[in-house]
């Protein structure tokens, strides 16, 4: 039982573990739904298929993470109930994902910042002492490798095409700047995750790893490095109106009949 595995760790961990899983699941869930807004209207047909498929991948990752979370909290809610039956204020995704998909450049900029941070987070979990998460992370990383290739290809093209593409990309990075580093902001009670070997480093180390990973890419493309997160304790709270709108969209079918079987 995964619940037993969690409670075998140091006492404070189950709650910290639940917050870690919730943060990861909500991040994947929100960016998955937000990017799926491009279905039908992406810049070209092939990219429409690619972005929709990637968004679906993120939703599948979220579903798997919500299932782990349901085992850990063990309060009778299943993955769908956790995913859909919370008010907008109950979501725990990073503020970076609170921004609307915006124009194509903003979607690319947001996804680049998110994917690179998520890759660092997944790497820090690759040897996790919590075996269900370690197993899942191994699978997720195999898909995320392709997502990183895809988004870096797009970032390079927008950054190196003078005029509207580069100008829009710079404007998007500027709009996202203060929230860019929120994905790896320290989680509450992260010390117990460290002590139990669930993650291999504190959030501050992960932030440094992320910056070391993106610095050469951004320097090569003459793009600015993001500043530190404006307010790390609020990295996952006080969500935006853009997210409230998205929440209304992605819960609309569920609200029709929460007990319907799919």
């Amino acid at each position: 039982m995964t619940t037993a595995a969690a409670s075998d760790l140091v006492p404070a961990t189950p709650n910290a573990l639940a917050l870690l899983l919730l943060a990861m699941a909500d991040d994947e869930f929100v960016i998955g739904f937000s990017d799926s807004e491009w279905t039908g209207i992406a810049p070209l047909l092939e990219e429409d298929v690619a972005m929709s498929s990637i968004a679906q991948d993120e939703l599948a990752h979220a579903q798997a993470l919500f299932r782990l979370l349901a085992d850990v909290v063990d309060d009778g809610r299943d993955a769908d109930a956790i995913a859909y039956d919370r008010p907008a204020d109950g979501y725990f995704h990073a503020r970076l994902l609170d921004h609307a998909r915006g124009d194509w450049a903003q979607t690319i900029a947001r996804r680049f910042l998110y994917e690179t941070a998520d890759a660092v987070r997944l790497e820090a979990l690759a040897g996790s002492s919590y075996l269900p998460l370690r197993d899942l992370v191994g699978k997720i990383r195999r898909e995320e490798r392709y997502h990183a290739m895809h988004i870096t290809a797009w970032l390079e093209r927008l950054a190196s095409t003078a005029g509207e593409p580069r100008n829009r990309l710079l404007a998007a990075l500027d709009r996202l700047a203060l929230d860019a580093a929120t994905v790896l902001a320290p989680l509450p009670d992260e010390l117990s995750l460290l002590m139990a070997g669930v993650v291999d480093a504190p959030g501050s180390d992960l932030d440094a790893r992320w910056r070391a990973a993106i610095a050469p890419v951004l320097a090569r493309l003459k793009l600015p490095m993001p500043p530190p997160a404006a307010d790390p304790p609020r990295a996952r709270t006080d969500h935006s109106d853009a997210f409230r709108w998205l929440h209304g969209e992605f819960t609309s079918v569920r609200r029709l009949d929460p007990r319907a079987a799919w």
Binding site: E46, E47, A50, S53, Y146, H150
Partner: peptide, 21 residues
């Protein structure tokens, strides 16, 4: 067939259109 601006994106799109299932 896929329509793509260059070879790198063509590979990505081919993977999505003919390899994702």
């Amino acid at each position: 067939s896929v329509l793509a601006p260059d070879a790198e994106l063509a590979v990505h799109y081919a993977r999505e259109l003919f390899g994702r299932r």
